[in-house]
Design a protein around this nucleic acid. Structure first.
Length: 833
RNA sequence: GGCCCUCUGGCGAAACGGUAAACGCGCUCGACUCAAAAUCGAGUGGGGCAACCCCCCGUCCCGGUUCGAGUCCGGGGAGGGCCACCA
């Protein structure tokens, strides 16, 4: 075959895409004897067209998947679409089209773009979450989890738009608590909702993080903070003149002797009960005002502390002292017990509040060393550090940590509290008053209440004839054919649940569905799960650190309990890729006019150049700016590679046996070739160092370019280099690599695909140079450089160094106290005098 | 306020505690050309010097550990991210 003189990606890429597809090259499960590897990228939400961010994730995952394949693994590299969700529904409301129609179109466009980028996906496993054959299993999990008590019904808070008369999502609440669509005020409303008891897994989810050593620290840290375990104590304060008790939660029970008042959240159930009649009007007004204020504004840090006295007093069980009970905006009903003991001397919030309302401030912690803390009234701010208890009765003089233990134990003995643990993590409310989601499979029977749809009757399908207006009751409630049904137990006329599930449910377990995407009997095949799970490498954006990645881990644990998976964690290694910004360094956005479309760039430069750019610009986790100049440079690089193959075609006829005779620059070339293989291989193994691997390939090309092989040994060395180059390019620029490989193997092996070839091996003996340049330092400063045999020992190198004229000058008249020798790198003379 | 990350040439970046700036971009000069583009070759951290010999300075700042620090430790600064009155 004769090659085109010029590199024209447009003429070769689609041809190889077709070949891979016809050959089923990337189908998983075709190497049953090989070690499996599961490489997954977060599936896309197909709103609009594919953007550069998508091109980057899939390029990273693809390079890895292709490399593992060449290393001989059976690789599962699937793709699907996260198709249900709010944006599609909102778009539908806007342009009057059905979300199913619109989503289907977007998927068609995404699929085409992905194929044009040459991703090695196993397309036969494609999963679309909007498909009833997928969401049916969401419903199945719902029923199973309901049986196990993991799903339950609770009173939840929702954003209620006073104009649309419907619940809206957080994303639809714009500044000043207005509805994004109609501009009406949004208020908080308490409505019943379905929730997952993820808090029951808080301990496991936290402990599991310790095992995720191949996850970025920042992600596990964020999860840790989100789960937010805090160890403290609960203490009951009896309300004077009442049978009620106020239970407070504190992490600083060591400061309890400094408690000078107690505060309840406005929503606290005891608020009304403890309030004295003479204070009722004021308290009611305050609570009502707080109800109307949006949470962020009321409890945000900027918000001034505000409160009102209830007239009641509560008794500190440690001191017997009665302290006033207040209601304040800064106490959150949903954290802890919704009530706090206030110790203004040692808590900044309590301090500010006490100052504002003239409440006493009492110092009860002294520093372990140094000056004593002045009495509370003289403090300028709270002292929040641990120390030693003071003015704390029988508990005085204890270090804070010990005091916390003793005081907690004392509460437990006295029956008025004890040590406890609280979590920041809340249960996951997943009811949505929306159309474009998985219907919740519940039927409300007048006699039997909420009855789950029997699993054999699943899926409960979304009715196609939805009326989506974004106002009034949930869309499904407006479809009588959907709502009206009969009770599965007694067959009485009943109504279906009209809420749908949060889309995070869809993405919580999709990776498992890829194992047997057409399974009709179960969500996935547990036998296949044993082979493929956990995921070896999961690539996605760090913005999913806490929501998706926590739900994903939670769901996996539930599946593990259901006996579906062997391991409790879904994924061994997580790679979070950075953003692709516009050429101006700003986030790509229509607003800035800096959006660069991957499809357009593929048209212009070909997929391989776009892929190389993504991999070469920076390590995967860093943000990058799109750069037209860099892209030009990478296109030039591929063109140079192409011309090299064209101009050195003669080398492919050189006899293999001549290789051993390569000498001089051609022996150096062979060394470069083997070092390059080593460098690329080790970069992939270690840390997905695509950028330095590609740099090594460029160096090899630069060296090749300077050579004019003539004799057989020279041509053989060039052939060896070009063969390696084509293979090493395979994971990064797969189309041009296939084309060049085809040139390497010749017409005789026309059926072979590079993607099926083994990854090249390097000869360690050829990776070391025989002569190395060694730095000579005197007292750690570079003073010279000598060339020595790689195997040279200290004595030899020292002699060479001492013979160096420059070094001599620095050593003259000095006493050498010590010599540090690092083989192949440097020698350092430590001198005095 | 808490937690985390980052800081290296004009730019993107490299660098097991061991010759800082590989590789790419940009720029300069040269070759080819009538000319340009493309391509190829050379150079390109700052300062000093007749000199491309050589010397000094250089990885945000200050200090420490070390024969030796971009890298490790302590303190500070700037930028970014996430959470945010979590008791």
């Amino acid at each position: 075959m004769s090659m085109n003189e010029r590199y024209e990606p447009q003429s070769i890429e689609s041809r190889w895409q077709k070949r891979w597809e016809e050959a089923g090259t990337f189908r998983a499960g075709r190497r049953p004897q090989a070690e499996p590897r599961y490489v997954l990228e977060m599936f896309p939400y197909p709103s609009g067209a594919m953007h550069m961010g998508h091109a980057r994730v899939y390029t990273i995952g693809d390079a890895l998947a292709r490399w593992l394949r060449m290393r001989g693994h059976d690789v599962l590299h699937p793709i699907g679409f996260d198709a249900l969700g709010l944006p599609a529904e909102n778009a539908a409301i806007k342009d009057g089209r059905h979300p199913a129609e619109r989503t289907a179109e977007n998927i068609v466009s995404f699929r085409a773009e992905m194929k044009r980028l040459g991703y090695a996906f196993d397309w036969e496993r494609e999963v679309v979450t909007a498909d009833p054959s997928y969401y049916r299993w969401n419903q199945w999990f719902f029923v199973k989890m309901l049986e196990k008590g993991i799903v339950y019904r609770r009173q939840g808070k929702a954003n209620w738009c006073t104009g649309c008369l419907t619940v809206i999502a957080n994303e639809q609440v714009v500044e000043d608590d207005k509805c994004e669509r109609c501009g009406s005020p949004v208020v908080e409303k308490v409505i019943p909702e379905w929730a997952f008891r993820i808090t029951a897994y808080a301990d496991q989810l936290l402990a599991g993080l310790d095992g995720l050593t191949a996850w970025p620290d920042r992600i596990t840290t964020m999860q840790r903070n989100w789960i937010g375990k805090s160890t403290g104590a609960e203490v009951d304060f009896a309300v004077q003149g009442s049978a009620e008790k106020i239970k407070v939660f504190t992490t600083r029970v060591d400061t309890i002797f400094g408690c000078t008042y107690v505060v309840l959240a406005p929503e606290h159930p005891l608020t009304a009960a403890v309030t004295r009649p003479e204070r009722k009007a004021e308290v009611d007004a305050f609570v009502a005002r707080m109800r109307k204020t949006e949470a962020a504004e009321r409890t945000g840090e900027g918000a001034p502390k505000e409160g009102v006295f209830t007239g009641a007093f509560a008794v500190n069980p440690y001191t017997g002292e009665a302290v006033p009970v207040w209601i304040a905006n800064f106490v959150l009903a949903e954290y802890g017990t919704g009530a706090v003991m206030s110790v203004p001397a040692h808590d900044q919030r309590d301090f500010e509040f006490a100052r504002k309302y003239g409440l006493p401030i009492r110092t009860v912690i002294q520093p372990a060393a140094g000056d004593r803390t002045p009495p509370g009234e003289q403090l300028g701010a709270a002292t929040t550090e641990d120390g030693v208890t003071d003015a704390s009765g029988a508990f005085s003089g204890l270090p804070s940590a010990a005091a916390r233990e003793r005081l907690s134990a004392h509460a437990a003995q006295g029956g008025f509290g004890g040590p406890t643990v609280r979590w920041h993590l809340r249960d996951w409310g997943f009811s949505r008053q929306r159309y474009w989601g998985t219907p919740i499979p519940i039927i409300y029977c007048p006699d039997h209440g909420a009855v789950p749809v029997p699993v054999e009757q699943l899926p409960v399908k979304l009715p196609p004839q939805a009326i989506i207006t974004g106002t009034g009751e949930p869309p499904l409630a407006k479809v009588p054919e959907f709502v009206e049904t009969t009770c599965p137990i007694c067959a009485k006329p009943s109504r279906r649940e009209t809420e749908t599930m949060d889309t995070f449910v869809d993405s919580a377990w999709y990776y498992a569905r890829y194992l047997s995407p057409k399974d009709e009997a179960q969500p996935f095949d547990p036998a296949l799960a044993r082979r493929w799970l956990p995921i070896d490498v999961y690539v996605g954006g760090p913005e999913h650190a806490v929501m998706h990645l926590l739900y994903f881990r939670f769901w996996h644990r539930v599946m593990h309990e259901l006996g579906l998976t062997a391991e409790p964690e879904p994924c061994k290694r997580l790679v979070t890729q950075g953003i692709v910004n516009g050429p101006d360094g700003r986030k790509m956005s229509k607003r800035w006019g800096n959006v660069v479309q991957p499809g357009y760039m593929v048209d212009k430069f070909g997929a391989d150049t776009v892929r190389l750019f993504m991999l070469f610009a920076a390590p995967p986790e860093k943000d990058i700016d799109w750069s037209d100049e860099q892209v030009d440079g990478l296109f030039r690089f591929l063109s140079r590679v192409w011309r090299l193959f064209v101009s050195r075609q003669g080398c492919f006829e050189a006899p293999e046996a001549a290789l051993a005779q390569a000498a001089g620059p051609y022996l150096e070339l062979r060394r470069r070739t083997h070092r390059t293989i080593k460098k690329v291989t080790e970069g992939m193994e270690a840390d997905l160092k695509f950028n330095t691997g590609i740099a090594a390939l460029m160096e090899l090309v630069n060296e090749l370019q300077g050579l004019e092989p003539a004799a057989d040994p020279e041509r053989a060395a060039v052939r060896e280099a070009l063969t390696a180059l084509a293979a090493l390019l395979g994971p990064f620029a797969p189309h041009v690599a296939e084309e060049l490989w085809h040139e390497v193997v010749g017409a005789a092996a026309r059926d072979r695909l590079l993607a099926d070839e083994p990854w090249p091996a390097f000869d360690p003996a050829l990776c070391v140079a025989d002569t190395v340049s060694i730095a000579v330092q005197v007292n750690g400063k570079l003073r010279g450089e000598v060339s020595a045999p790689a195997a040279a020992g200290e004595a030899e190198v020292r002699a060479l160094a001492e013979a160096d004229e420059k070094v001599k000058g620095y050593l003259a008249g000095k006493t050498v106290k010590k010599v540090v020798f690092v083989p192949k790198r440097l020698v350092n003379f430590v001198v005095a005098g």
